[in-house]
Amino acid sequence: MRHRLAALLLLAASTPLNSIASVPSFKTEDLQSIDAGYLQLQWEAEEGADITLQRSRNADFSDPVTVYQGKGRALFVSGLAEGDVYFRLEDSAANASDILTIKVRHQSLKRALYLMLLGGLTTLATIFVIIKGARNAR
């Protein structure tokens, strides 16, 4: 009985491991929110396997765009527009990863413009002091 239980446990433990090794998977945290539209995607797959990375604006991948094909295990993506973006991986044997969801939530435009205004005023004041000082020093 004990032997049978041990064998079952071994089988249970080994089966998912084998299947995980052959299926590509993201190392990047799922459902993370980014505020500047860029991030580095990382994944793992069988050694030497060719990977296709697809992006979509819809969770059902009705409009997939291939953004990478090759043996690399990371890609930097940037310039993402506001909203949710979905990524998935596929190897040459058509093993597909779980879908990775990235929430793009850009910083507040109002706050950005306000900070720009403050920065602009500080810079203009600095330029004014230098130019006026240089003129007076002549």
């Binding site: 539209g37 850009h106 435009l109 950005a112 720009m116 920065g119």
Partner: peptide, 21 residues
């Protein structure tokens, strides 16, 4: 592929201008 990179009102980039300067 990267529309925000061309966006004139890209918040993170606007903030970076004067901070960097």
């Amino acid at each position: 592929n990267s529309p925000a990179l061309l966006d004139v009102l890209f918040p993170a980039a606007l903030i970076a201008i004067f901070n960097n300067l």
